[in-house]
């Protein structure tokens, strides 16, 4: 029995997956479905006053922007440009998992049938939460930013420093932070500076909030610096998320970050790969890439 258990443990993930899917689709299905129903019920029991306040704010915004929308439509008609694809994100409820081996992960109640793919970005109103790791027809499992394998390409909102953002474990989960690694040694990013997604790698759209700088984490003499970040999103507080189902481009307007143009945008190393070949850019944030 011990040998069999060890063999299962050491199997490659691709061979473990059918067994996991079998368990989730049979014995565990009623329990997972119960949590999905509870999450749906919880999302319907939001305080009406909060909803009303949000609706009023949105109504004011829509009224203020109505003339712009009409102008935009007329200009697009004159130039014969089609409407932009607005269905780039799908809303989803977060389902928490309390079992062993599911640390730093969560389920969402949409899946392949809704356009979710492995590597789809998961965002909240505050910023980056995580990325989808495994997808079934109606559900998906994602890792949040506290997962050791989470990585996103980031930049300061001023465009001063670019690098990779990954988790830095604290003694307790509440102390988990993010760290921007690989920033140039000459960069001098002040505490309080905002760090956003850079869009490099074509996984996360550009301009989404990641966190704010707390201070220098590490400085390799003459080579690079790392900065500790306070995350914009605490995973335990996320109940509803947006899941990217199509390339979203630049979302800086939504998070009011307005970063300058990417100096490496013309660099073939980081440019989107038109042929779809898995170069460095397209594999940077993919699950299992590290």
């Amino acid at each position: 029995m011990l040998l069999l258990a060890i063999i299962i443990l050491l199997l490659p993930a691709a061979y473990q997956q059918p067994l996991r899917i079998l368990l989730r689709g049979t014995v565990l299905q009623p329990f997972a479905a119960t949590q999905a129903q509870l999450a749906a019920r919880r999302s319907r029991s939001v305080d009406v006053r909060v909803l009303r306040a949000e609706r009023d704010s949105l109504a004011a915004l829509v009224v203020a922007q109505a003339p712009l929308a009409i102008e935009n439509r007329e200009l697009r008609a004159m130039l014969r440009i089609g409407y932009r694809l607005e269905q780039r994100f799908r809303p989803a409820n977060v389902l928490r998992l309390g079992s062993a081996g599911a640390e730093s992960t969560f389920m969402i109640d949409i899946g392949r049938g809704d356009g979710v793919k492995v590597g789809s970005p998961v965002l909240t109103a505050e910023g980056v939460l995580g990325t989808v790791w495994e997808v079934s027809e109606h559900r998906a499992q994602a890792i949040d930013w506290t997962h050791p394998q989470f990585v996103v390409s980031g930049m300061t909102a001023t465009g001063e420093a670019y690098g990779l953002v990954e988790a830095r474990r604290g003694r307790f989960r509440e102390e988990d932070l993010l760290v921007l690694t690989g920033a140039p040694f000459h960069s001098d990013v002040r505490p309080g500076s905002r760090v956003v997604t850079s869009g490099r790698g074509d996984v996360f759209p550009r301009g989404v909030m990641i966190g704010t700088v707390l201070g220098i984490d590490e400085a390799d003499t003459g080579w690079r610096k790392s900065y500790l970040l306070r995350p914009a999103v605490r995973p335990e507080s996320a109940t509803q998320v947006l899941v990217g189902i199509a390339p979203a481009g630049d979302l800086a307007d939504i998070w009011h970050t307005a970063p300058p143009p990417d100096p490496a945008a013309r660099d073939s190393t980081f440019a989107p790969n038109p042929a779809g070949a898995p170069g460095m850019a397209s594999t940077l944030n993919q699950p299992g890439a590290r």
């Binding site: 996991r20 081996g101 599911a102 790791w133």
Partner: peptide, 9 residues
């Protein structure tokens, strides 16, 4: 382990 993403088994 059914819901585990890593260390299944």
């Amino acid at each position: 382990d059914g819901m585990a993403l890593t260390s299944f088994g």
